[in-house]
Computed example of a mutant assay.
Amino acid sequence: MPIATRAFAATAADAPLAPYGFNRRDPGPDDVAIEIKFCGVCHSDLHVVKNDLGGTRYPIVPGHEIAGVVAAVGANVTRFKAGDRVGVGCMVDSCRTCAACLEGEEQYCAPGMTQTYGSADPKGAEVGQTITQGGYSDRITVDQNYVLRIPDSLPLDAAAPLLCAGITTYSPLKEWGVGPGSKVAVIGLGGLGHMAVKLAHAMGAEVTVLSTSDRKKADAERMGAKHFLINSDKAAMKAAGETFDLIINTVSATHEIASHVNLLARDGTMVMLGLTTEGLPVYAMPLLWRRRRIAGSLIGGIRETQEMLNFCAEHGLACDIEVIAPDQINEAYARMEKSDVRYRFVIDMGRLDRAA
């Protein structure tokens, strides 16, 4: 029996998000039905709603930072039961047979992972859905293999953005072996950047934040940064040359990176995390001369995402958030475009009754 679902959706690139009703599928044998309590607001939600990346199909319900409580489970589900605290991140399925999936790297699924919203939805036909719909809604049904357990010590609201902002920064820190003695720089102290600072610090790294101004310096230091560098200060940038083993670049807009390459030590790597749609020029010589690298990273697999949640619980880490009602989402988007959030908006879906 279809599950009536209330949500906020975008119907066009130039239209505000508005109340929207649709049906979720009833949980099948391997499914978990989740009552969504909170959903984080990611900058990529804004990109998709505005069709900045092309290919957005409307109406679209964004949201891939989902925290809630299990409402029901299918007959084959053994890992979860009603009442469990759970999360859903950026994907809800993958092919499960390609090399990436078999290695627990479902985010790099060769045919393409099924994203939490905006992907073709082969399981949605029974309720008239052609694409997946996300977490700006009061419920969701997801295969048990793509559901995460949220540790009891993590508040659900502050845990929600960990399902994207947390894993997106945790994964490259782990992949590039960050630990005691590592020197890590984080470009941009926003939704991703503030978690990169917290996680790198908890892993034992010496952390530096690079920003365009010092207005977030106190926040950076509170989160664990030892140094703060203004990237327009040429003297300071020169003095910091050949310092960092790893630079986590979280900026999601077109920006200059060539000068930042010189901050890398020999064999250092800059990892790009921000969704940029234009080229970012670099020069060969600074790369060649110190065997430096520029790389990319995309969220993490299900196993690694659970590892990240457990790590955050162990170290008392969560996102700095501003909780909003569903009908404040358009105001939140406007503020996000001005970088006016510290550091992640989270929608309280329990307040949907007052909005829809």
Rank of each mutant, 00 (worst) to 15 (best):
A258I: 05
A258F: 07
A258G: 14
S259W: 03
S259P: 12
S259N: 10
S259D: 13
N262W: 05
N262Y: 06
L263T: 00
L263E: 00
R266K: 11
D267M: 08
D267I: 00
D267S: 12
D267L: 06
D267W: 01
M270C: 07
M270K: 01
V271S: 04
V271I: 10
L273N: 06
G274E: 08
T277I: 15
E278W: 06
G279T: 12
G279D: 14
G279Y: 10
L280S: 01
L280Y: 03
P281S: 10
P281T: 10
V282R: 07
V282W: 03
V282L: 10
V282E: 12
Y283W: 08
Y283K: 15
Y283N: 14
A284H: 14
A284E: 08
M285C: 04
M285D: 03
P286Q: 08
P286K: 06
L287V: 14
L287E: 11
L287R: 08
L288T: 00
W289C: 08
R290D: 14
R291F: 10
R291H: 12
R292M: 03
R292K: 14
R293S: 12
R293T: 00
I294Q: 01
I294V: 13
A295P: 06
A295I: 05
G296L: 01
G296R: 06
S297T: 03
L298Y: 15
I299S: 15
I299R: 05
I299H: 08
G300A: 15
G301H: 02
I302V: 15
I302W: 06
E304H: 13
E304I: 05
E304D: 13
T305C: 01
T305H: 02
